[in-house]
Design a protein around this nucleic acid. Structure first.
Length: 666
RNA sequence: GCCCCCGUAGCUCAGUUGGAUAGAGCGACGGUUUCCUAAACCGUAGGCCACAGGUUCGAUCCCUGUCGGGGGCACCA
């Protein structure tokens, strides 16, 4: 790689540059160095390291398959020559390259593989130094990508409270923002609130008719649950009306029930289904309640003041409730968009697109996007009555978002059920020739389903697992566990710990699963707190701080020893850490930056979550085998304390990406 | 009918972007406690990586097909 600096400047910068090289960059340099030594010209081959299957085989492995293929030779033979070349370079009189502050101490071949062993003491010193110097920045890449990335997530409807699906959405959105920011990008987090439409009018109408002027304050209810209750009430009243309608029209609704249909087959079933849709269509047209809701929407769009006033009041209640939940979960946004303010925007765009031939007006006045060239079905963008649809609104908002922030990439965190919508959206944006359209990306994720028989966590509204209920339940279970085990004292401390642990359990449980997969959500497993769980990671972190406290108590360490959170680099001889379990932990600590970088490239935080679980286990093994405070010498004790503190720092940094708190005591 | 995603231990999930002997947790069975928090550690059992072809020196990973599960293909959002 060419340096942008002149040779003189580089030499002047030398010391500083060397220090700022992260372990991640060290591995990259090592890879290019190896490429140059390869017995086959390999400029076009990108070497990547893997881990040998067994630790005693070495620290890094490279396969010679690609080289061998290029030279049409035997891989093992190529590896053998390669090994000789590397050994010669290591033994050269000119010494090792300046950047190689962790020397390669051994090169071995195992068939087609080249296994390298790194000097353990140097590696320990280097990794520990990097962590101690960078602390919360360890694993982060400098903010030099020059890329601004916009992330839209959460996107709630203001007619009912947040549910389990929103929880996954928020967790993915929050953690992905943190991850991309850690990878050196500038991130803008945006929430597009869906605060308008017929569903909003339903809860408004129910409130207007049956609310008797009560408010969230008057009945001590969280605003979003309050409004959600009326949304459910609307549905109930609709069902009642439907039943009455059926009766007065001589239709037996029992005929449409699942039980009744179970006995039908083929044409009979088809006929019955048709009968049902026809009935529903008729009822739809004639329903008094639905008609009133539609009328309300018309008045809303016409700017009717009483409707707008009610809408404002109820939206305020819901948003107030959402903000409480967001705050509790740690969800933050840089900017909020409201559909009520953006839903008209797309119309101008459509006008413009008509000129470009992207859209086409039909005889009935409706306007369609022509998508044949993208191998998609045409999509309506303006109804025959001139009103806009979801797609129109999203087109407008996309343009507005880009005008406001000019992000190079725009990521939409939205469930996989909307894959088709985004495929169409991006296709239209491209046809409209927005240069930034290709930077659009749908970060899709799967559903969260419950195992059957899980009624306990169903929401107050009875439709889905309510987010607040879920957080409360986890909190309570954690609190009970803490009381039982006597892990904390005082109500305040118990409550605080319970909240951290309950959320840690939930967040890690959800984030460790790859986003594209559906999650089978089993609350029991989430709050087990043992094994591969968030609390286990948090617990490791807390115990490390417990060790330091104990060390000070026992007079083995002084307050000033660990003044800055770590021991000083001089006082902790980490090169003494030679046990297998210690080396394993050090190697894992070194890998953190790579995990962050590749996870960011792949737009998923799941590997970060799994990395933390693995690090936790590796640490537990080490801790179990090798006493820290009871180490054979004071020197070794300090080295182990330092390593433990490094583990705690990396756990903390990783948990921070996942928006999980790292408690110092539990 | 067409499109997208998923299928790995009894259950819930990882799997270094195609490489060496496929890994965890839970559950089961057995062990470890005068020792820094047992919310722990160690061991045993448990696998045709859904199935069948193909590409490749090499496939859990890529391609095609079949089966199974989920989601979608609105003048709903």
């Amino acid at each position: 790689m060419d340096s942008p600096h002149s040779p003189a400047l580089v030499s002047w910068l030398h010391l500083e540059e060397e220090q700022s090289v992260s372990y991640l960059e060290f591995e990259e340099k090592l890879a290019t160095w190896l490429t140059e030594l390869a017995p086959v010209e390999a400029d076009d081959i990108e070497l990547s390291f893997t881990k040998p299957p067994k630790p005693e085989m070495g620290d890094l492995a490279v396969a010679a398959f690609d080289l061998a293929k290029k030279a049409r030779r035997n891989p093992a033979e190529v590896a053998g020559e390669w090994k000789s070349a590397v050994e010669a370079a290591l033994a050269a009189e000119s010494g090792l390259p300046d950047w190689m502050d962790v020397p390669v101490t051994e090169v071995r071949t195992a068939g087609p593989y080249l296994n390298l062993r790194l000097d353990a003491a140097s590696l320990a010193r280097r990794v520990v130094r990097e962590i101690v110097e960078e602390r919360t920045d360890y694993g982060r890449q400098p903010e030099n990508s020059g890329r601004k990335i916009m992330l839209e997530y959460s996107s709630p409807n203001t007619n009912k409270p947040l549910h389990l699906g929103h929880v996954r959405n928020n967790l993915i959105g929050m953690s992905l923002s943190n991850l991309l920011s850690a990878a050196g990008h500038e991130v803008v987090r945006v929430n597009l609130v869906n605060d308008r439409g017929i569903h909003i009018c339903k809860s408004m109408l129910a409130y207007e008719r049956f609310g008797n002027g009560e408010t969230p304050e008057s009945c001590g209810e969280k605003g979003d649950h309050f409004v959600g209750r009326y949304y459910v009430l609307f549905d109930q009243k609709m069902k009642e009306e439907r039943a009455g309608y059926a009766k007065s029209h001589g239709v037996d609704l029992e005929r449409f029930s699942k039980d009744a249909k179970k006995e039908l087959e083929g044409d009979e079933l088809k006929a019955r289904n048709k009968e049902e849709t026809e009935f529903d269509e008729r009822f739809d047209k004639e329903s008094e309640l639905l008609g009133a809701a539609r009328e309300m929407l018309r008045r809303w769009e016409a700017g009717d003041e009483t409707v707008l006033e009610l809408w404002n009041r109820m939206n305020g209640w819901v948003l107030g409730g959402f903000k409480q939940t967001y705050k509790r979960m740690g969800s933050e946004f840089d900017h909020w968009y409201y559909e009520s303010q953006t839903y008209q925007l797309g119309k101008d765009l459509v006008e413009k697109g008509l000129g470009l031939g992207v859209f086409e007006k039909h005889d009935d006045g409706s306007v369609w996007a022509k998508l044949e060239s993208k191998k998609l079905k045409d999509k309506i963008v303006l109804r025959s009555d001139g009103t806009s649809v979801y797609m129109t609104q999203d087109l407008g908002t996309s343009v507005m978002k880009h005008e406001d922030f000019g992000a190079e990439r725009s990521i939409y965190v939205v469930g996989s059920e909307q894959q088709h919508h985004f495929k169409v959206l991006f296709a239209i944006l491209e046809l409209l020739q927005f240069p930034w359209a290709s930077g659009s990306y749908h970060a899709s994720y799967g559903l969260v389903t419950l195992p059957r028989g899980m009624g306990r966590l169903k929401s107050r509204e009875g439709t889905a697992v309510d987010a607040d209920d879920l957080l409360d339940t986890l909190h309570e279970i954690a609190a009970a566990k803490i009381r039982e085990g006597g892990y904390a004292e005082g109500d305040k401390a118990i409550e605080a710990a319970a909240e951290m642990i309950g959320q840690g359990a939930l967040k890690l449980y959800i984030l460790q699963v790859s986003p594209e997969k559906n999650i089978q959500f089993d609350p029991k497993e989430t709050i087990a707190f043992t094994g591969d769980t968030g609390p286990a990671v948090q617990y490791s972190h807390a115990r490390i701080h417990g060790i330091v406290r104990k060390g000070i108590e026992q007079g083995l360490l002084t307050e000033s020893d660990v003044d800055g959170g770590f021991l000083s680099l001089d006082s902790a001889p980490v090169h003494l850490l030679e046990e297998d379990e210690e080396r394993d932990v050090i190697r894992r600590l070194a890998d953190f930056g790579k995990v962050i970088a590749t996870s960011a490239e792949n737009l998923t935080v799941a590997p970060v979550a799994n990395y933390l679980l693995d690090l936790t286990k590796a640490y537990a093994r080490m801790y179990h085998e090798h006493p820290v405070l009871g180490a054979a010498s004071a020197e070794l004790m300090k080295a182990r304390v330092q390593l433990a503190l490094c583990v705690a720092q990396v756990l903390r940094n990783g948990l921070a990406v996942l928006t999980i708190e790292a408690p110092e005591r539990m």
